[in-house]
């Protein structure tokens, strides 16, 4: 290839064809300069680039892990709070139910007690009334007997055997009641 170019250069008598050939000082300078660039990049730049990338990767990885950890903690706390709230609600409902049941019980007791007292009062009243009635009956019976005897004494004009007559009247009243 170089020979072709050289031949072309010769046929054209130099000039522009010179430009197609590498100039020796420039070639040597290019080899040295590129060699330095390559050596620097190979030995220094690429390790520095890799180190920088790795550090960044590590830092980002660490931050992500930290964020995940924090999120997990936050999720745990949230779950705890939710559980506590649920527990509190359950307890509240339980207490309300208990209170309601107690109230029902108290209500039932009060009503039962009131009923029993009412029954008692009624029974006592009935008993008192019966006793009063008996006592009034006894009094009336005695009064009627005495009045009858007094009347009879007045009619017959003498005294009658009071006890015997009272016994008679009593028997008579009893017969009437029967």
């Amino acid at each position: 290839m170089l020979n072709v170019i050289l031949a072309a250069e010769e046929s054209e008598g130099g000039g522009g064809a010179d430009l197609l050939l590498p100039a020796t000082p420039e070639l040597i300078a290019g080899i040295i300069a590129f060699g330095i660039v390559f050596f620097f990049i190979w030995r220094w730049a690429v390790p520095a680039i890799n180190k920088s990338l790795e550090e960044r990767q590590r830092a980002i990885g660490g931050q992500l892990q930290e964020a995940e950890k924090t999120k997990a903690e936050a999720d745990g706390l949230l779950a705890d709070y939710r559980a506590q709230i649920a527990e509190a609600k359950a307890k509240q409902n339980e207490m309300i139910d208990e209170a309601r049941a107690e109230a029902e019980q108290v209500k039932a007791d009060i009503i039962a007690k009131a009923n029993a007292e009412a029954e008692q009062i009624l029974a006592r009243a009935r008993h008192d009334a019966d006793a009063e009635r008996s006592r009034v009956l006894v009094d009336a019976r005695s009064d009627v007997a005495n009045l009858s005897i007094d009347l009879a004494e007045r009619v017959v004009g003498g005294s009658l055997d009071r006890d015997m007559q009272l016994g008679l009247v009593e028997r008579y009243i009893q017969d009437l009641e029967r």
Partner: peptide, 12 residues
């Protein structure tokens, strides 16, 4: 441009 001299492109 140094790349307009054949030495550099040809060497690389």
């Amino acid at each position: 441009p140094i790349t307009s001299r054949m030495a550099i492109p040809l060497f690389l």
